[in-house]
Design a protein around this nucleic acid. Sequence first.
DNA 1: AGGGCTATATATAAGTT
DNA 2: TAACTTATATATAGCCC
Lengths: 113, 113
Amino acid sequence: MGRKKVEMKRIENKSSRQVTFSKRRSGLIKKAREISVLCDLQVALLVFSPHGRLYDFSAGDSVTNILKRYRNQNDANDAESSNDGLTGVSPAALLQIIQSAGMLLKIQLIMYS
Amino acid sequence: MGRKKVEMKRIENKSSRQVTFSKRRSGLIKKAREISVLCDLQVALLVFSPHGRLYDFSAGDSVTNILKRYRNQNDANDAESSNDGLTGVSPAALLQIIQSAGMLLKIQLIMYS
DNA sequence: AGGGCTATATATAAGTT
DNA sequence: TAACTTATATATAGCCC
């Protein structure tokens, strides 16, 4: 879907890889949003970039808000509290939160590195 | 991306909605696979259809195998044991399994209804 | 409930600013 | 870096089996 057909293999150039990650992450989020709307499914999508940044989208209950509540309640030593309150949540913690809030989410998409 | 531009709202006709779900689920899986290869990330994608069917893709360790091992070990009353051993796994159980096997998965995509 | 087909809408790889 | 542009590759809606 671009000027050239791209080979399906790891992009060796680091900055090109980052650009592609960023573009395709957006596309994935959009697709998730669309399937959720068209097919009437709740979707939550969490994307951790290679650098630990968390992007999210959710239809229905906000995963972001769930995470924020969790962090506010359980994380006393919140040293690196960021603008969105999400950066630095470990995958393990995230899964635990989602599990405990499972009834809120009919469909989930979770992606992290 | 079709003969007509589709409105972003719930598809009311049930069978049309099912067809769209099926097609777009495939697309989402493909996109997940591609971003995992291009950006060198492990991806596991689990998709539960509205009827409980589980589809999955994973690069790196197989989530399917993890789930199979789990079911073999923990599920004595495996009444509806299916051909792939996955149908009927509850989202809650799934998340628990993934959490306990978290170190195996760098990136996860989980989607269920 | 899927599996092709084809026209069209969308996503995105490079190029540009 | 990070937008913006544009040519091209890809996804998919509607249709027919």
